[in-house]
Deep mutational scan, measured.
Amino acid sequence: MSIQHFRVALIPFFAAFCLPVFAHPETLVKVKDAEDQLGARVGYIELDLNSGKILESFRPEERFPMMSTFKVLLCGAVLSRVDAGQEQLGRRIHYSQNDLVEYSPVTEKHLTDGMTVRELCSAAITMSDNTAANLLLTTIGGPKELTAFLHNMGDHVTRLDRWEPELNEAIPNDERDTTMPAAMATTLRKLLTGELLTLASRQQLIDWMEADKVAGPLLRSALPAGWFIADKSGASERGSRGIIAALGPDGKPSRIVVIYTTGSQATMDERNRQIAEIGASLIKHW
């Protein structure tokens, strides 16, 4: 067993022997300050990975656009099909120029040879490739089937209704393509630590998230040396920005953090900075 597999395998073990964890309200002060700075709603939740206990939250049951954070859930659904023998990570999918949508930095380079399901999930999570996400959605039956998968997991909140890039419209009070911080955190925890996926698939999912290449300005920018993070960011219209992450010190994840914001007129750089500052406060008061 590799060191990485050993780390994931021990998560349920540590759950039975973990020391108590305590929240620090200073982080919530920073979350509220971020709302003021951005002139927008901010949703935040911090969940103990082992016990599932909510350590701190702000607007945990308000809806926010999922943006590209849905791609982790999508690849979780794909992996569940792999575990059930209904899909193969090595299966090659061919597509055409007509399938390409905006922001497809990986898939646009493989029009001649296609990409495997594994490569598409990697592109969707690590590079947030939109065409990769659409091709993967097709393999499971579309957005409604992803919503059904989540319902079967016990998540009756999170929903995907449209494809890339339309799902990023982020219209106020529109429940399409939205989640709540509490629902997303719970669902992510189930995918990473529960029995829904095999150990190999849980490890694959967290490996893809750990290799995320487009979330550098967010929580990763505040991460001390030696800390672990596996994450997925998202951005969409109407000043929306978000990130879902499993992180912790000593090279292993111990908490789930979900941050969403929407309705801001601030620049992308400012939205990134506010999320990074929330992360810095979280780490300082860990």
Rank of each mutant, 00 (worst) to 15 (best):
P105R: 03
Q203H: 10
T139G: 09
Q204S: 09
L100A: 02
L10K: 02
G242E: 00
V21D: 06
S104G: 02
T112Q: 01
I244R: 00
H151Y: 05
L89H: 03
W208I: 01
E62V: 05
A170R: 07
T262N: 10
G76C: 10
A280G: 09
R7W: 11
T112R: 14
V31L: 12
V157L: 07
R176W: 05
P60Q: 12
H110V: 02
W208R: 00
R202M: 07
Y103Q: 07
L218I: 02
Q86E: 13
H285A: 04
L79D: 00
S236M: 02
A77L: 09
L199S: 13
Q97W: 12
M268V: 07
P249R: 04
T178V: 02
S254G: 11
G263A: 13
P25Y: 06
R162C: 04
T147S: 06
I45S: 04
H285V: 03
S236L: 01
G216S: 09
L199R: 15
S104V: 02
D250E: 12
D269R: 10
L247T: 14
V21I: 02
H285T: 08
D36L: 03
L47Q: 05
S104L: 00
E175R: 06
L73A: 09
G226H: 09
K144Q: 06
I93M: 06
D231I: 03
M127S: 07
R81C: 03
P12K: 12
D99R: 06
S281L: 10
N152D: 15
S221E: 10
A222C: 08
D161E: 03
P249H: 02
V214M: 11
S80K: 14
A225F: 09
A84C: 07
P253H: 05
D212R: 01
F58L: 07
K252A: 13
H156P: 10
L79C: 02
V157I: 13
S80E: 14
E108G: 12
A222L: 04
A222T: 13
S128G: 02
A84T: 15
A84E: 15
M66C: 04
A23V: 11
D99F: 06
P172D: 15
C121A: 07
N98R: 13
K32V: 09
S201F: 09
A185V: 02
Y103L: 04
P181C: 04
N152R: 11
T178I: 01
L218E: 02
D250P: 04
L38H: 05
F149D: 02
K53D: 14
G226P: 01
R41T: 05
G251S: 09
A16V: 13
R63H: 05
D174P: 01
L223N: 00
L188V: 09
K144A: 14
D231A: 04
R220A: 01
S51G: 07
K30I: 06
P224S: 02
N168K: 03
P20L: 04
R91L: 03
G251F: 05
N168Q: 06
P12E: 07
T126R: 03
T178L: 00
P25E: 08
M184G: 00
K53Y: 10
A225P: 15
L19Q: 15
Q265H: 14
I283L: 05
T112A: 14
E46R: 01
G76D: 00
S236E: 02
Y44T: 00
S240L: 03
T147C: 06
M153T: 09
G216I: 03
A225T: 12
V106G: 03
N130Y: 05
S254Q: 12
C18W: 12
R118G: 15
D33R: 14
A182M: 15
I243S: 00
L47T: 08
S221G: 05
G85D: 07
S57N: 05
L150S: 05
P249S: 03
A245E: 00
T112P: 11
E195K: 12
G52V: 03
L111D: 05
R81H: 09
V72R: 00
R238K: 13
R220S: 01
L191V: 05
M127T: 09
A215D: 02
M67D: 04
L79E: 00
E61V: 11
H285N: 11
E108V: 13
D207Q: 11
P172V: 08
E175D: 12
I256N: 00
E237M: 15
A266E: 06
K32I: 12
R202C: 09
K252V: 13
L196I: 15
K213I: 07
R162E: 02
P12G: 14
A245G: 04
G85M: 09
T178Y: 01
A183P: 03
I278P: 00
P12V: 14
D36R: 15
L219R: 01
I54D: 02
D99A: 10
A15N: 06
L49G: 01
R202P: 01
Q97H: 13
D174L: 02
I243D: 00
R81I: 03
